[in-house]
Amino acid sequence: MKKCKYCGKRYKENSIEHIEKLPDFIKEKIKFIPDCSCLEEMFKREMEKLEKERVHECMKNRVKKYKDISVVDNKFLESRFENADMSEKYMILAKRYADNFLVKNKKTGMLLYGDVGTGKTFASACIGNYLMEKGKTVMMINLGLYLNKLSREFGEAEKDILKQIEKCDLVIIDDFGTEKNLDDNSTGWRAEKIYNLIDTRYRSGKPLIISTNLIFNDDEEKCEITEKFSIQGKNRIRDRIIDMCFPVRVTGKSRRGITKDKFLEFMA
Score class of each variant (00 low, 15 high):
254 S>V: 05
132 M>A: 06
101 F>R: 05
251 T>M: 06
241 I>D: 07
107 K>A: 09
238 R>A: 00
207 P>S: 07
81 F>L: 05
111 L>I: 05
38 C>N: 00
53 E>V: 07
185 N>R: 06
166 E>T: 11
212 T>C: 04
8 G>Q: 07
224 E>L: 06
40 E>Y: 11
36 C>V: 01
232 Q>S: 12
231 I>N: 04
140 M>L: 14
80 R>P: 00
69 I>K: 02
50 L>C: 04
146 Y>W: 14
102 L>D: 09
2 K>Y: 11
118 T>G: 05
225 I>G: 00
241 I>R: 10
203 R>F: 11
1 M>R: 07
180 K>T: 12
78 E>Q: 11
136 K>I: 07
76 F>T: 06
100 N>K: 15
122 F>T: 00
200 T>P: 11
174 D>M: 13
19 I>Y: 12
217 N>Q: 04
7 C>D: 07
135 G>P: 06
137 T>E: 10
6 Y>N: 13
146 Y>V: 10
12 K>G: 10
37 S>P: 03
123 A>Q: 05
160 D>M: 09
56 H>K: 10
88 E>V: 06
6 Y>R: 10
237 I>N: 02
126 C>M: 13
166 E>L: 06
117 G>M: 08
148 N>A: 14
24 D>V: 13
171 V>Q: 03
101 F>S: 01
158 E>S: 04
206 K>C: 05
204 S>M: 10
38 C>D: 01
50 L>I: 15
24 D>N: 13
22 L>Y: 12
167 K>E: 09
118 T>L: 07
16 I>V: 14
120 K>G: 05
180 K>N: 06
106 K>P: 03
123 A>G: 02
4 C>E: 08
64 K>R: 15
81 F>A: 02
2 K>L: 13
233 G>M: 08
263 F>A: 14
80 R>Y: 02
7 C>L: 10
48 E>I: 13
148 N>D: 14
262 K>W: 05
147 L>K: 02
52 K>H: 14
40 E>R: 05
